[in-house]
Computed example of a mutant assay.
Amino acid sequence: MPFPNFIDSFATNITGATPPETNPQHRALLDAFIDVQNCDRRLLTDIATAIEAGKGTAQQLEACADALIERFVAGYELSLLLSTDCCCAQDAEPCAPCGLEQGEECCQDPELPDSLLEACLGVFAQLGDPYAVASADLVDALRDLPGVAGKDWRYNDLTQARLAQLLAPYGMRTRDITLPDGRRRKSYSREALLTATGGCTSC
């Protein structure tokens, strides 16, 4: 459930309080925890479906395996966030990475990407413009970028599930693709990315 939700927003309006500014680190932790909960529910549902069907079909077993992998990834992302120092907290303590007080040019990253799609194209370009890039590899590369990818998620907070949510409105979905190195992974194609940006797909 998103936060603040309707009830919390309504309570803020009734009390006349000023909505506090969201701390990006706290928001990322909340989103990561919600991702873990959603993965748990999906995993339990897939397992229950397979049990009701007896041994389960190959498709059901594959769905269970995919859900379990997503749960591992989401849990790992949450662990990373829980172990990361919270920078630029509201107590105006010096910011650990840059040593500056809150309100100064603290944690400001230069050369922000114009958009998530442009950032993805940049990753493809760095890799020599392959016809496809695995979702996991794309996320790893995007996490090194500064700025916000979308939905208040910074690039370094991206996960495969979050990237999928951000790219879905552009009609982009992962597909099982055999990559140039021989791996078969859930991947994004360069053609789909160029189509989403309105670029030339034959270039």
Rank of each mutant, 00 (worst) to 15 (best):
F3V: 12
N5Q: 09
D8S: 14
S9W: 14
F10S: 02
A11I: 13
T12F: 01
I14M: 10
P19G: 01
P20V: 10
T22W: 07
N23C: 11
N23Y: 04
Q25W: 10
Q25G: 00
L29P: 07
L30C: 03
D31E: 13
F33L: 15
D35G: 00
N38E: 12
C39F: 08
R42H: 06
A50G: 00
I51A: 07
K55I: 15
G56L: 07
T57I: 07
Q59M: 13
E62K: 15
E62A: 14
C64N: 09
A67I: 09
A67C: 12
L68N: 12
L68E: 13
I69A: 14
E70S: 12
R71W: 14
F72Q: 15
V73I: 15
L78D: 06
S83V: 05
S83C: 04
T84N: 09
T84Q: 09
P94I: 00
A96I: 13
A96E: 10
A96W: 12
P97K: 07
C98I: 00
L100R: 01
E104Y: 08
E105Q: 10
C107N: 01
C107V: 02
D109A: 07
D109C: 05
P110C: 03
D114T: 09
L116Q: 07
A119D: 00
A119Y: 01
C120Y: 02
C120S: 02
D129H: 14
P130N: 06
S135M: 13
A141V: 03
L142T: 03
R143E: 03
R143H: 07
L145S: 01
P146V: 03
G147K: 05
K151M: 13
R154I: 08
R154D: 03
Y155R: 04
A161L: 09
R162T: 01
Q165Y: 01
Q165V: 12
Q165L: 15
L166W: 06
R173K: 12
T178M: 08
L179P: 04
P180A: 15
R185F: 13
R185K: 11
K186W: 11
K186M: 12
S187I: 04
Y188Q: 06
Y188R: 02
R190N: 10
E191G: 07
L193H: 03
G199R: 11
C200Q: 13
S202Q: 13
